[in-house]
Design a protein around this nucleic acid. Structure first.
Length: 352
DNA sequence: AAGCCGGGGAT
DNA sequence: ATCCCAGGCTT
């Protein structure tokens, strides 16, 4: 039975490595509580390169926690458009408002966890990075790094979860001199830049001499395979008028919650011509893949829109929109509109 | 414990 | 095609 690598050795190797190799990221230059909160929420399930422009845009528009707390929901959701997981935008606002009412973000994991929108990861991130507290933190990168260095074979999302958190906590306890921010960010940086899911760069890793995974690194961590997304067939009706395109607002909860889009419904009984839309013309089809669903959308141009089938989403508001950047519009909705405009179905139509 | 929630880059 | 990313909330 082999023992796991020594915690103090790991910490003492990782922290200097991080200080030398840390990428120069905007939220690292001045890690105030607000900047850390903003970056961490944006980075949930989202890559650094995707977040960068959003982070700068948010910070320019709402420079302080209080500014964000005072912002209308609509403005924040519109600024979030394209980042995905839109409930994050509402949670971020809830966090900002609750923290602002307290006079600022608290500096302990317990108090942070009590705020809406702050889970175990984000609480650890703010406590360690913004306040220098020795709080553990586990994200996808840390899971991978820890499972490999210890050769842990349990699923880190299930039975192995507690062990990974305990191991990171042990690293903090063993780290001397302590630098909780560098330790946590070093774990994540290692996972993001060297200890990658495939083709890890073990030759450059500060832990390579003691890593128990060795040549098996690529097979760790062992996670359960997720089922392929379920296919959903939709039809979307794009109506152009003198004041722009007709958009409707989705319910606050659920998929694309609170966002605007051309009326879009699950195909049930076929012909849209039956539903008070005037002359229609099929513009094309696009496929939009999400984590849990594969959306196949038939895009139809129509002359007007008198009413909607009851089977469609319960839309409450309508608006004629000319500037898609001024309102909360998903990438899917942009692609639908682009398809109706004859721009094909390629991605990447967003530019600000 | 399991399901839900976007979008995109890397391989 | 497949994986998975600086996760949290609801049921």
């Amino acid at each position: 039975m082999s023992t796991v690598p020594d915690a103090s050795w790991l910490a003492e190797r990782l922290i200097p490595w991080y200080r030398e190799h840390a990428r120069d990221l905007p939220w690292r230059r001045d890690p105030t509580p607000y900047r850390v909160l903003l970056s961490e929420v944006m980075l949930q399930q989202t890559r650094v390169d995707t977040v960068l422009p959003y982070f700068e845009r948010f910070l320019a528009r709402w420079p302080t926690l209080e500014d964000l707390a005072a912002a209308p929901d609509e403005d924040v959701l519109a600024a979030w458009a394209g980042l995905g997981y839109y409930s994050r935008a509402r949670r971020l606002l809830a966090t900002a408002r609750a923290a602002s009412a307290l006079g600022g973000l608290p500096d302990t994991v317990e108090e942070l966890r009590a705020l809406p929108g702050i889970g175990p990861y984000t609480a650890g991130a703010i406590a360690s990075i913004a306040f220098g507290r020795a709080a553990p933190l586990v994200d996808g990168n840390v899971e991978r790094v820890i499972c490999r260095v210890d050769r842990r074979t349990e699923d880190p999302r299930k039975e192995g979860r507690a062990g990974v958190w305990a191991r990171v906590a042990a690293l903090h306890e063993a780290s001397e001199p302590a630098d909780p921010s560098a330790l946590n960010q070093g774990l994540m940086e290692l996972g993001a830049t060297l200890c990658t899911p495939r083709s890890p760069s073990c030759d450059r890793c500060p832990w390579t001499e003691c890593c128990l995974a060795g040549a098996e690194a690529e097979s760790l961590p062992r996670k359960e395979r997720k089922p392929p997304p379920r296919e959903v067939r939709l039809v979307s009706v794009v109506v152009r008028g003198p004041r722009g395109v007709l958009l409707v607002r989705r319910p606050t909860e659920g998929l694309f919650g609170g966002l605007w889009e051309p009326p879009c419904g699950v195909v049930s009984d076929g012909d849209v011509d039956a539903w008070g839309v005037g002359r229609t013309e099929r513009a094309g089809q696009l496929v939009h893949v999400l984590t849990h669903r594969r959306l196949v959308v038939d895009v139809v141009r129509a002359e007007r829109l008198d009413d909607l089938p009851d089977s469609w989403c319960a839309y409450e508001e309508r608006a004629w929109v000319e500037d898609l950047d001024a309102i909360a519009v998903s990438e899917l909705a942009r692609r639908i509109i682009a398809t109706a405009d004859g721009e094909g179905t390629r991605r990447g139509g967003r530019r600000r």
